[in-house]
């Protein structure tokens, strides 16, 4: 096990320093060192998607990433999404009842915040395809899919205005 090193990470636009062992996972550093506990850990082996954050605006698994690799990259977590009130996607999840226990929800929000930016007019198939990277044990996915479709429509409308 090698020595801890002082690294600086840019998280939600803020640069913070922390002392980490090279093997420390990004998910643990976010949750434990920075108290950003909205990033959840559901499997720690890259399947469930609960730990999804954005690295340089692209969705990535925080549980498969070492914090030490993240110097020079921009990390965005769920806590930054609602800076200006609920995002259209968060609002749609609420309105469409797209969450029950909510444990999977931050990972789903992060996945689709990025997706909808790149794909403003997705089809339902495509949404299901992308959503297959996030496990949800409560909802059966149907309402999450309708929430994403609704958010997309709303965002298109807002962009058109």
């Amino acid at each position: 096990m090698s020595e801890a090193r002082l690294i600086s990470l840019t998280v939600n636009g803020e640069t913070r320093e922390t002392l980490v062992e090279p093997r420390r996972l990004l998910s643990d550093v976010l949750r434990e060192d920075f108290a950003l506990t909205g990033t959840h850990v559901g499997c720690e082996h890259g399947v469930c998607g609960a730990c999804t954050v954005l690295i340089d605006e692209k969705p990535a698994r925080a549980c498969l990433t070492y914090a030490i690799q993240m110097e020079g990259h921009e990390i965005t977590t769920i806590e930054a999404v609602s800076d200006a009130g609920l995002s259209p996607l968060q609002r749609a999840l609420h309105e469409e009842h797209g969450l029950q226990c909510g444990f999977c929800t931050p990972g789903i929000v992060m996945t689709f915040e990025a997706f909808l930016r790149d794909t403003p007019d997705p089809g339902e198939e495509e949404v299901r395809d992308v959503l297959s990277g996030n496990l949800c044990r409560c909802t059966g996915y149907q309402n999450i899919v309708s929430a994403v479709m609704k958010a997309a429509a709303e965002m298109r409308e807002a962009a058109g205005d």
Partner: peptide, 16 residues
């Protein structure tokens, strides 16, 4: 009625 608990959960402020 839409759920009261959602706000904290969709914003990552749930406390598990």
């Amino acid at each position: 009625l839409p759920r009261k608990e959602d706000r904290r959960l969709v914003t990552g402020h749930g406390r598990y």
